[in-house]
Write a protein that binds this DNA or RNA. Structure first.
Length: 480
DNA sequence: CCTGGAGTTGTCCTA
DNA sequence: TTAGGACAACTCCAG
């Protein structure tokens, strides 16, 4: 082992196990583990509030596993790394790749800059099952439809890396724990918001690698059986809730893939397992789209949507954000988001459809709100999914697919458990009227203690009329 | 180059 | 009550 240390730059890989770059750094020498909060370079794509809350606690957990030796920096990553390399005479810098356009640009330049300083620079795949540049059609162009991307592309490619263990030996540097120039402590990153909103979120989540592993184990043990059906019901415990852990790399997609793959290979729950794996496939697809179409977060993938007649209605937007639309399933979902930093997948489709089709507000509004509120906010998943529900993305929902918030509630929250939990003012309303309280007879509302327009809003739009208007708007795009 | 099947997640109306 | 077809036409993609 040489006397020069190597730097492992933690990014979206806040874990010790199955961390290819960390293993390589540890094999090369004593490791200086660092994290850099680079809001400057991120610009418009800087993390939202919920992500920052999560990141703070995830870094705290990681720092604990590293014996308190994680170094924190804030600012332009290129400048910080170049100066750090010189200061400690590092032999190498190691990191796992990220796929956001701003990070790719920054990292590409940085690789050259550090290389020019004579430092070894190596990047690894620590977060995707397949590299986006490996999964392309035979003619070399990117897939734009999920099913062939997944079946022909992913599943017929060489299988993903088997998860690695933690580094066999990890010497951390500096051994004496001295603070380096420019380094701060975790609090110095200023990730926590000042208001009390985070206290709610904290009740629902435990960031960090240990918790992520436990979540995966629990999902495989108790959620996977019945996943295919149960994942559609927000009150059922079948969804994995791994998304924030995966986003921050507290657990790798490979670890999740093989944990579930192994169940199927042992001949159990094959259909449920395949269904879950294809959801990981969607994560790959989103990342592939973002890699191939870097404008995905801003521009319609289908250019003809540039002429779509969006509405402009700040009042409707605010009511959607606050869960005051008068549609109980929509309001329950939006309040779940606000209170827990998360929203069940089916409900993301329901509220997304409501925003872009019934309210006809631009998908950018939904994307921005989710970006700030979701603990699993992920540039690739968020932008690809909003474009999908709006109909302007890859493999998008057909124009006629407009979710009916009443029907969706009745179908997927049949006894109203979920809706009553997040819209307590409707808790006493019989399920027959729970999703359409404006149609309830006066005495039923009175018995449930509801005065529409006072303690629960009337619907802000009529679903039937607004659906017609949305279909007409889609028709106006035809051949344009 | 041409061909034809397929396309995550729905709703509404009719028989 | 329930099942089936309509709802645009298009693009994608593999053979």
């Amino acid at each position: 082992m040489t006397s020069s240390p190597t730097i492992h730059w933690f990014r979206q890989d806040l874990r010790l196990s199955d961390n290819p770059a960390l293993c390589a750094a540890a094999a090369a020498g004593a490791v200086v583990p660092i994290y850099i909060l680079d809001d400057e370079t991120a610009g418009q794509d800087r993390m939202g509030s919920a992500s920052r809350w999560w990141l703070h606690h995830s870094l705290a957990a990681l720092n604990t596993s590293l014996g308190g030796k994680l170094l924190f920096f804030r600012g332009d990553a290129a400048t910080i790394l170049a100066s750090l390399v010189t200061q400690i005479e590092a032999a190498g810098v190691y990191w796992n790749r990220c796929y956001e356009p701003w990070r790719i640009t920054r990292d590409t330049a940085l690789k050259k800059r550090l290389g020019d300083l004579g430092v070894t620079v190596e990047s690894y795949n620590g977060s995707l099952l397949w590299e986006p540049w490996d999964i392309v059609k035979q003619d070399g162009t990117p897939y734009r439809v999920f099913t062939p991307f997944y079946r022909r592309g992913c599943l017929s490619a060489p299988p993903p890396r088997q998860p690695l263990g933690p580094p066999p030996s990890l010497d951390l540097w500096p051994a004496d724990g001295k603070i380096l120039t420019g380094a701060s402590d975790l609090a110095g990153l200023g990730l926590l918001p000042r208001h009390a909103w985070q206290d709610n979120i904290a009740r629902h989540w435990t960031p960090g690698e240990t918790s992520a592993q436990a979540r995966l184990d629990d999902f495989v043990q108790t959620g996977l059986a019945g996943y295919k059906e149960g994942r559609n019901f927000p009150a059922k415990p079948n969804v994995s809730r791994l998304s924030p852990h995966l986003h921050f790399g507290e657990i790798s997609a490979n670890q999740a893939w093989y944990a579930v793959r192994d169940v199927a290979d042992s001949g159990r729950l094959e259909s449920d397992a395949d269904n879950f794996l294809s959801e990981l496939g969607w994560r790959e697809f989103s990342h592939s789209l973002l890699y191939q179409f870097p404008a995905l977060p801003r521009a319609n993938l289908q250019v003809k949507f540039d002429g779509f007649p969006w509405a402009d209605n700040p009042d409707h937007l605010a009511k959607w954000q606050r869960g005051q639309t008068g549609y109980p399933i929509v309001d329950a979902a939006m309040r779940e988001l606000w209170q827990t930093g998360y929203m069940h997948n089916r409900l993301r489709m329901v509220v997304g459809s409501f925003l872009v089709k019934n309210l006809r507000l631009h998908w950018h509004h939904g994307e921005a709100w989710f970006w700030d509120c979701l603990v699993d906010a992920d540039l690739a998943n968020n932008s690809a999914s909003w474009q999908w529900i709006a109909g302007c993305g890859a493999d998008a929902a057909p124009y006629f697919r407009v979710f009916n918030p009443v029907t969706q509630g009745q179908k997927f929250d049949p006894d109203g458990t979920f809706t009553r939990r997040f819209v307590p003012e409707l808790a006493k309303l019989p399920v027959k009227y729970l999703f359409n309280p404006w149609e309830a007879p006066a005495h039923i509302l009175a018995d449930a203690g509801i005065v529409l327009g006072e303690n629960y809003p009337r619907p802000i739009v009529d679903v039937k009329q607004s659906r017609e208007a949305a279909l007409a708007a889609f028709a106006s795009l035809r051949n344009s």
